[in-house]
Design a binder for these strands. Structure first.
Lengths: 130, 130
DNA sequence: CGTTCTGCTTACGTAAACGTCACCCTTGGT
DNA sequence: ACCAAGGGTGACGTTTACGTAAGCAGAACG
């Protein structure tokens, strides 16, 4: 781990992924490690991006969707690019908020289900004891 | 749509899925439509399950994970089965709550990012006007 | 009676996201 | 000088979640 960069192994251990995964993400332009000769050196930027990638995956986003989100996280400077990124980001934000609401609803339903289950369990114990 | 059941077409239009998808879900035992001769008739139970399936997918659950969640939604009666389902459901609930928290964090970060972008855009306009 | 829908089954095809394998460097120890 | 580690590059294999195509059955319509 020279300076601010990490080797592929260090990345794998830190984020619990395989080398293959990191190379794959690079091939998909999700990561852009610098090269020291042949070897990859992952920068702070790569680490931040990987964190976002893994998070995105947990929420069911495809790698392609994630790639767009990422590009938007380092907001291309070219005035028009920035505006476009801003647009995209807004949409994603709305999508995520909708997802959160739906998730909250799902949680509430599951909680009701659990309470019902708890009641059933108590009833069965009483019934068995009688 | 006789009585309480729906044909495959009606299901497709209602939930915006293809027939193939419904047959596939049946083959994976996620749905269990009754048969009228050859034809499938989807019941209220199937509709409820499909709703949960589609929701689960949006949150990045695999069909296999969803299948377990589903079985737990109609809580097998056999005292021990119920207890096991209850366990599983509790775990899933915790998982979902964690996901919601992470999602909220992601939303907050994206919002900060957007505010930064908005400031940049204003700056660029000012710079261009000067 | 022939055709046109719907739907069913079987089976092969496909895209995404890696896993796995074979083979080739280079570099640090002994 | 030797060789095992660690890293790299194809390239093919695998799993998930369906798509697509081929062919058959029963209803419905002119």
């Amino acid at each position: 781990m020279t300076d601010e960069t990490m080797t592929i192994r260090e990345m794998c251990e830190t984020f619990d992924v395989t080398p293959r995964t990191l190379r794959f993400y690079e091939s998909k332009e999700l990561l852009g490690p610098i090269r020291q000769g042949q070897k990859r050196l992952f920068t702070r930027r790569d680490r931040a991006r990987l964190k976002l990638i893994l998070r995105g995956k947990r929420f069911g986003f495809s790698l392609e969707e994630i790639r767009q989100l990422l590009d938007l996280y380092d907001m291309g400077r070219s005035k028009e690019q920035l505006a476009k990124s801003y647009e995209l980001a807004s949409k994603h934000l709305a999508e995520m908020e909708a997802k959160r609401d739906e998730l909250n609803q799902a949680i509430a339903e599951l909680q009701r289900q659990l309470e019902w289950g708890a009641r059933e369990l108590r009833n069965q114990e009483n019934g068995a004891a009688a």
